[in-house]
Simulated assay, not measured.
Amino acid sequence: MPGPDFIDMEKVSKYENFLNEVLRVDLKTTLDRRDELYNEIAQYIELQTIMGKLSAATGGGEDDGDIGLGTKLKTRVDIGSNFYVQAEIPSTKTFTVDIGCGIWLQMTGKDALKFCDKKLFFLNARADELTQKELSIKAQIKMVLEGLREIQKIVTKEPTPRNEL
């Protein structure tokens, strides 16, 4: 039987492998997915802002559904790497919105705003789920690290209670 100073290196190796090959990879994947969601959220917020500015500029309102009032609009479009070209939109009566899975749908301004609100609600809920998953993975990482410290008999300072006066 091994002595009290024996460290099971096979067990340590398994824990380290689990930590590095599973938990840290899961954490990175979760954070990347959440970042993609935040980018999509930013795009929908930008769409709402643009439609609001267009409504204010043309005198349309959300109540009547005619945000753009069918007016012609001149603008600049970023085609990548901050390279802009001039564009002319013949009518702003309808908006073409990406509703997901590569499907684009023409909507009135009022419908597009409703869609943005619903999509933002869904995306924020999904981002919250990924944040909870991130916290869970971080807790698992902390637990595995504590297990490794215990197996390797690494002595750490006792944490001082924060609520002590």
Score class of each variant (00 low, 15 high):
Asp5Leu: 08
Met9Asn: 06
Lys14Pro: 00
Glu16Gln: 15
Leu19Val: 03
Leu19Ser: 03
Leu19Asp: 01
Val22Leu: 08
Val22Lys: 12
Val22Glu: 12
Lys28Val: 07
Lys28Met: 09
Thr29Leu: 10
Leu31His: 08
Leu31Pro: 00
Glu36Asn: 11
Leu37Ile: 03
Leu37Glu: 01
Ile41Ala: 01
Gln43Tyr: 05
Met51Asn: 08
Lys53Gly: 14
Ser55Glu: 13
Ala56Phe: 08
Gly60Arg: 01
Gly61Thr: 11
Glu62Cys: 00
Ile79Pro: 02
Ser81Tyr: 04
Tyr84Ser: 02
Gln86Trp: 02
Ala87Lys: 12
Ile89Met: 10
Ser91Cys: 07
Lys93Trp: 02
Thr94Gln: 09
Ile99Lys: 11
Gly100Glu: 04
Asp111Glu: 15
Leu113Val: 07
Lys114Ile: 09
Phe115His: 09
Asp117Cys: 04
Lys118Thr: 11
Lys118Arg: 11
Arg126Glu: 15
Ala127Arg: 03
Asp128Trp: 06
Leu130Lys: 04
Leu130Met: 10
Leu135Pro: 00
Ile137Asp: 01
Lys138Gln: 15
Ala139Met: 11
Ala139His: 12
Ala139Leu: 13
Lys142Val: 04
Lys142Asn: 14
Leu148Tyr: 06
Arg149Gly: 13
Arg149Trp: 08
Ile151Met: 11
Ile154Pro: 01
Pro159Val: 09
Arg162Ile: 08
Asn163Thr: 05
Leu165Glu: 09
